[in-house]
Structure formats: C-alpha cells, structure tokens
Design a protein around this nucleic acid. Structure first.
Length: 275
DNA sequence: TGGCAGGCCAATT
DNA sequence: AATTGGCCTGCC
C-alpha cells in the first residue's frame, strides 16, 4: 500500500473502529483498517513503530483526513484531566490510547444513531452498510466497489419497503421523516453548527426517533461538542457503579472525550457480561 | 434458541 | 413529571 505516513503513536484506527462512534470502519486484515467516509474509501495500516500509513496523498491527508481524525488535537491533554485518585479512568485512558473523537458528517451521524436504538454495534454496522448499498452512490476503488452514505434526497424519496429491507424495522418512518425535514428545509444541519450545545440538542430532539441519547451522540460525533456525554446502558452502569451516580465536575469541559474512554473500556473489558 | 440489544413514543397515572 | 408497554430484527 502506498500513501502518506503519519507519525503519531497516539492514533489507532483499530481502537477507534471498535469504540462505537462510527459504523463504517472495519479491519480488513491484521493491522489494516478500511473506512468509507466523505464519499471516499480510505485504508490505514498501523506499523510496528506506531506510525500509520494512509492510502492517500499528503495533500489529501492535510486537507481533510487530518481534521476528520482530529489529529490536530493533543489527546494527552484530555487524558491528563483524569484525577489522581480516579484509578478506573486512569486504567480506561491507558487501555484506550489511540482513541480520537472523529469529525464525522452530521447527516450521517443523525441517521446512523436513529438506526442504533435497540441494536448492537454489529447489527448497526449491518444496517448502515445495507442502507449505503441500496441508496448510496457506488464508486470504484482499487479494492472493489464501495458505496457512499446515502444523500438526504435519496432517502427522502425512498420506498418504505426498500428501507425496511435494510433491517431498519420500526425506524423506517423516523428515517423517512428526518430525511424529508432535511430536504425541505425544516431541519438545517449546517445552520445548527452555530448554535450553542443546548440549542443544538433541543433542535435535534424535535425529530421523531431522536431522544436524548441519540441527540447526544449526534452532538458529540457529528458536531464535535466535546462536553456532551451520551448516556447509554454502558455509561449508566459506569456512572452508577464507579462514580456513585455522577461524573466528577472537573471532567465537564471534555466529558465527552472522557466518556469515550470510559465507554470503550467498560464495553470491551471492564464490566463485560458478568465477569 | 430465545433473550436481548449503545431507545423512543404514546398512553396512562 | 414519572412510569410502562410495545416495537422490528439481527446476533450471541
């Protein structure tokens, strides 16, 4: 694989792909992760020395992927927020070294997290992939045909039965309505960028199928609001069992980042099924 | 092999 | 304002 080599041992595509914030990153072989995003397909190879080889030019890396993976940010400063006596978080940030909060597209996040309700991560991946295959723009890559995430116009005009065939179940009307709201200007995703976090979440909550958990995920992963903490069953367990009902105030400004480390650790290691 | 999954809605108190 | 049943269906 040819491309641009990025030297930074605090960036791991494999860890990010399993961290539950994106659904189109897959490991294709040992140490190689593939991603479909921004209408393109990208592969990343993690080298022994901690560097990552991007299957793109240096120019493309600097123009978009660097920002997409939040590589301008120093995550050491987020990990340093961990309080000295918070051994659980210290363990979690060490375990999750290489995590980044990606700058993903708000539209894709909104639809993906509407789909996510009452689904496991593998099931979400399946559904998003089917949706992209059915309604997304196909494009040729050196690895074969890939499918961009569908545009709002395409989903707004979709046949409900064809949507249902993507394992969307009772979420079909939610997706259709949201797509139509975006197409017909009732929901302006770009305009929302200028709103405060509180107003942003308030607007997202107006959509059917969007509750506080989904709205929080969209704010954090689609609008990069790093202070937002999506509380799902895993975070609920952590907040209850480890923090006695509330995260320390000190974590507030970057609680979303802290959350990502805690969530990742709890789900993949710490509190996994009854051990 | 049935339960359960990274919730939300609507009806009911 | 808070509680509860029902919902589609893939995955372990």
């Amino acid at each position: 694989m040819e491309g641009f080599r990025f030297v930074n041992d605090d960036f791991s595509p494999a860890v990010i792909g399993e961290s539950g914030q994106c659904f189109r990153m897959v490991t294709v072989e040992e140490g190689v992760t593939e991603l479909v995003a921004l209408g393109e397909c990208l592969r990343l190879r993690e080298e022994e020395d901690g560097s990552v080889l991007f299957s793109c030019s240096e120019e493309d890396f600097n123009n978009k992927w660097k920002h997409y993976f939040d590589l301008d940010n120093d995550y050491e400063k987020y990990r340093a927020i961990a309080l000295p006596d918070d051994s659980y978080l210290r363990e979690a940030v060490s375990f999750g070294r290489g995590i980044r909060i990606l700058n993903q597209e708000s539209w894709e996040m909104l639809i993906s997290f509407i789909i996510s309700q009452r689904k496991s991560v593998p099931a979400i991946r399946t559904a998003v992939e089917r949706l992209s295959r059915s309604f997304g723009r196909p494009f040729e890559t050196e690895f074969g045909m890939r499918y961009a995430f569908p545009e709002p116009e395409r989903l707004a005009a979709a046949d409900p039965e064809e949507l249902a065939a993507c394992s969307l179940g009772y979420r079909v009307p939610y997706i259709l309505e949201t797509a139509r709201d975006v197409c017909e200007g009732r929901l302006e995703l770009t305009t929302l960028e200028s709103l405060s976090t509180e107003e942003l979440i308030e607007c997202l909550l107006k959509e059917k199928g969007v509750g506080i958990k989904v709205a929080s995920c969209v704010a954090l992963f689609g609008y990069h609001r790093l202070d937002v903490v999506p509380v799902d069953v895993w975070m609920k367990r952590v907040i209850e069992n480890v923090y006695g009902g509330e995260l320390p105030r000190e974590y507030k400004p970057y609680a979303g980042v802290i959350q990502q480390y805690l969530f990742n650790y709890a789900r993949l290691k710490g509190l996994n099924q009854g051990q």
